Simulated scan of single mutants.
Amino acid sequence: MYTGIQHLHSGIAYLALLALILVIIYALIGSLSGREFTEKDRKIALIAFILSHIQLLVGLILYFISPLGFSLLKGGGAMSDATARLTAVEHPLINIVAIVLITVGYSRAKKISTSRGKFRSIYMMYAIGLVLILSRIPWTSWLN
């Protein structure tokens, strides 16, 4: 079960990152071109929103069942080891903050009345979230 959830977490990560990148580009183009924000635009942003939230949910499940997650904090040595600190503290905390920012961007876009403002809320908050996510991916273990 652990291995399956680990593979699911890695697989959804590719989809979520790709969706975030595409939505950011799409919203940036929409904002710069001055076109109207439509229901289609909202649904495209919603896809990245949902994928990032699913990724967070699977990641939290993995965090609590993995020997590399929450259990590292119990030993007390996680903070002195950079790899253990990334896995046990930095990766989950920063990614929760990133998903909160993505959520704020999507929620604000629904309340803003101008199309440019809606696009801007999405591309700015999604981009900040994406940068945070990319900064805390454990690249050495993810690419192996």
Rank of each mutant, 00 (worst) to 15 (best):
S52A: 15
H53W: 13
H53S: 10
I54D: 08
I54Q: 07
I54V: 15
I54T: 12
Q55M: 14
Q55P: 06
L56F: 13
L56T: 13
L56K: 04
L56E: 08
L56C: 09
L56I: 12
L56M: 15
L57P: 03
L57E: 08
G59I: 07
L60H: 04
L62I: 05
Y63N: 10
F64E: 12
I65E: 10
I65H: 11
P67C: 10
P67H: 10
P67L: 10
L68H: 14
G69M: 12
G69T: 11
G69S: 13
F70D: 06
S71K: 14
L73P: 00
G75P: 01
G75L: 03
G75I: 00
G76T: 01
G76E: 04
A78Q: 02
A78H: 01
A78K: 01
A78S: 10
M79C: 01
M79I: 10
M79Q: 05
M79H: 05
D81I: 01
A82H: 12
A82T: 11
T83F: 09
T83C: 00
L86N: 06
L86Y: 06
L86V: 04
T87M: 15
T87K: 13
T87F: 15
A88E: 05
V89Q: 12
V89S: 08
V89F: 15
H91F: 11
H91D: 09
L93N: 08
I94Q: 07
I94K: 10
N95E: 09
A98G: 08
I99D: 11
I99G: 01
V100S: 05
V100F: 14
L101F: 13
L101E: 04
V104L: 13
V104W: 03
V104Y: 05
G105S: 05
G105Y: 04
G105K: 01
Y106N: 04
Y106T: 03
R108N: 11
R108H: 01
R108W: 08
R108V: 06
A109S: 15
A109Y: 00
A109G: 01
A109K: 00
A109C: 02
K110I: 03
K110Q: 14
K111E: 12
I112H: 01
I112D: 06
S113W: 00
T114I: 01
T114Y: 04
T114E: 09
T114L: 02
T114M: 02
S115V: 02
R116P: 00
R116K: 12
R116C: 00
G117T: 00
G117V: 00
G117K: 01
R120H: 02
R120N: 12
R120M: 11
R120E: 08
I122H: 03
I122D: 03
I122T: 00
I122F: 04
Y123P: 01
M125E: 02
I128R: 00
I128D: 02
I128V: 15
I128L: 14
I128Y: 01
G129I: 04
G129W: 04
G129M: 04
V131Q: 03
L132Q: 06
L132F: 14
L132K: 04
I133F: 11
S135H: 07
S135K: 07
I137K: 07
P138R: 09
P138Y: 12
P138Q: 12
P138K: 10
P138E: 11
W139T: 08
W139V: 11
W139Y: 15
W139S: 10
W139N: 09
W139A: 11
T140I: 14
T140W: 13
S141N: 07
